[in-house]
């Protein structure tokens, strides 16, 4: 289905956008009210990459970003890196990142061109918040030894910030798709994210 030159271009996109997510982590994190999980632009990057690259390439880029972190590069927000971050209580959110990107990408690419803000926002909320929390919250509950409702109420603290990020990500994705209309497939029954670039 894929020509090899498309695969090579996808390889370049994967590497570049893994780096893009990493660079967004270099923007300093802030912890509202001294809460222990810092809020960063990195999860915003995951949302944008999903909506821009589509499910397959976005998941690859995010997975690859996590691989670079696991290899010991301090690319995670706040300069963290190494295998330690995958043993911590918020590891579920990291593991949820590729799923979030894939869900957003699948919903956006399924609809195809032109990118519509309302639809894009719904897609970003479903993937970047609902799917992400569905993985992150149970893992936090398990790793921290607390009940699911307790972990859920803890994550509610981030909901407002994450909603703001979803709006921002949808606006950014819309502008990028207007600037580069070749990315999205034209509106037709298409079941693949691979587009001849």
């Amino acid at each position: 289905m894929h020509t090899s030159s498309n695969r090579t271009r996808d390889l370049a996109l994967t590497a570049t956008f893994a780096a893009f997510i990493a660079v967004l982590g270099l923007v300093p994190a802030f912890s509202p009210f001294g809460f222990p999980v810092p809020i960063t632009l990195q999860s915003l990057g995951v949302m944008v990459v999903g909506a821009v690259l589509g499910p397959r390439r976005a998941a690859a880029a995010v997975l690859f970003f996590l691989l670079l972190v696991a290899l010991g590069l301090p690319l995670l927000a706040g300069g963290r890196g190494g295998l330690g971050v995958f043993a911590g209580p918020s590891a579920g959110y990291l593991l949820g990142f590729p799923v979030a990107a894939a869900v957003i990408g699948a919903l956006v690419y399924r609809r195809g061109a032109p990118y519509q803000l309302g639809h894009g926002l719904v897609a970003t909320v479903i993937g970047g918040i609902i799917a992400l929390y569905a993985i992150g919250v149970p893992v936090t509950a398990w790793r921290a030894g607390i009940s699911l409702p307790a972990a859920m109420s803890g994550s509610a603290l981030f909901l407002v910030g994450d909603l703001a990020k979803a709006v921002l990500a949808a606006v950014v994705a819309g502008a990028v798709h207007r600037a580069d209309p070749r990315l999205l497939p034209s509106r037709a029954p298409v079941d693949t994210s691979a587009v001849p670039v």
Binding site: A15, A18, A19, F20, F64, L68
Partner: peptide
């Protein structure tokens, strides 16, 4: 990927 980080 490692080389792309400083580029981006």
């Amino acid at each position: 990927g490692i080389r792309s980080v400083p580029v981006v």
